[in-house]
């Protein structure tokens, strides 16, 4: 790296960390939020970044390292910008996740680390992302979940991210999902405000939803 990175938090970041510190009776408890802020800033958690978190929270480096190294969402190596956590856990895997993962490997020409040839993407097999009903799913860069994934939808997502466009948040909900008011409100989004408040008790009958 030609450009040297300065390992310091800005005043705003320090204030943000203090806000988290105030939530807990022990300042060390803010280590996870502080690590999130550090990872957001530096892209990954280098020893220097973890050292910064340790000194900011006045706690041992070893404890910061112990926490950071435990969780899959904290990156301990320098990684490409966009991570695809493709769920291949049992439901998603059974419902097409395994094929999506193979498709991703081939279409992005990833190396043995799962990094794409152009250095912009990184794929790995994810464990359950708690969206089994809309499987297969993947998560982009620790943030957005893409539901009901197909190879075509994957390619489309890659195209968007090549232009640094993050796909929109999907409020979830397959078409018939009984528990999703959004799915039902969707056809007439404009009228939602005008309709009189519905009776709190609505008889639900899944057989009518077809």
């Amino acid at each position: 790296m030609a450009e040297s990175v300065v390992f310091e938090f800005t005043e705003a970041e320090k204030a943000e960390i203090q806000k988290h510190v105030a939530k807990y009776p022990d300042r060390k408890s803010a280590v996870m939020p502080a690590l999130w802020i550090a990872q957001e800033k530096f892209g990954w958690l280098s020893p220097e970044a973890m050292e910064l978190v340790a000194s900011t929270l006045d706690m041992p480096y070893a404890q910061v390292y112990g926490v950071a190294s435990f969780y899959t969402m904290y990156f301990k190596k320098k990684v490409p910008k966009y991570l695809f956590d493709i769920c291949t856990c049992f439901t998603c895997g059974e419902c097409g996740g395994d094929q999506i993962f193979k498709h991703a490997q081939n279409s992005l020409q990833v190396d043995e680390n799962g990094h794409s040839a152009d250095g912009k993407f990184w794929i790995r097999q994810a464990e359950c992302l708690a969206a089994c009903d809309t499987g297969p799913v993947m998560q982009i860069a620790n943030r957005r979940i893409v539901h009901n994934l197909t190879p075509a939808k994957f390619d489309q997502t890659v195209d968007m991210l090549r232009r640094d466009q993050m796909p929109a948040f999907e409020p979830v909900a397959p078409k018939y999902d009984q528990a999703s008011p959004a799915a039902k409100a969707a056809p007439e989004p404009e009228k939602v405000q005008e309709t009189p408040p519905p009776a709190p008790e609505v008889i639900s009958d899944s057989s009518e939803e077809e």
Binding site: A179, P181, K184, A185, V192, T195, P197, P200, V202, I203
Partner: peptide, 25 residues
Amino acid sequence: WRNYTKVLIPDIPNLNQIDVYQKNG
């Protein structure tokens, strides 16, 4: 069960907004 009335997540749009939630008890 086919006549069950939902109480945990009833079919009320925008129930995640506190005004709507309060309007519904």
